[in-house]
């Protein structure tokens, strides 16, 4: 995944079963953002792996005031990259019961 300057990580352990998972997002490199950024720290939120779209969450963050509109794409991509990785790992994991 491209280094967007925005870091998204799991905020909880992934048991591979839950549809909603906690993620944590923060800015590692503010210079990569296009708009003004006020360092809020890490933003934790719940994300539904089955129903939600990363770009919608990014837009909500913009509307909440965490990011400028011009950075919605970068934030959305960062979330998307992490979600893709989570799903990929889940597909690779063979359940213990099997």
């Amino acid at each position: 995944a491209e280094d967007t300057g925005v870091r998204v990580e799991l905020a909880e352990e992934d048991d591979g079963k839950k549809s909603s998972i906690a993620l944590k997002l923060w800015v590692e490199d503010p210079k990569k953002l296009k708009g003004k950024y006020k360092d809020n720290g890490a933003i934790e939120f719940s994300y539904d792996l089955e129903k939600e779209v990363p770009e919608d969450v990014a837009q909500e963050m913009v509307e909440t005031g965490f990011f400028h509109e011009s950075d919605a794409k970068i934030v959305g991509k960062s979330i998307r990259d992490r979600v893709s990785l989570i799903k990929w790992k889940r597909e690779r994991t063979i359940p213990v019961t099997e």
């Binding site: 720290g41 890490a42 934790e44 939120f45 909440t64």
Partner: peptide, 27 residues
Amino acid sequence: SSTTQVVHSAGRRFIVSPVPESRLKDQ
């Protein structure tokens, strides 16, 4: 450490807290 909660109009909760020191990138 201080933590605040912000709720978006659509209902999503965002919990804001300081980035853990161990996760800060070397400047």
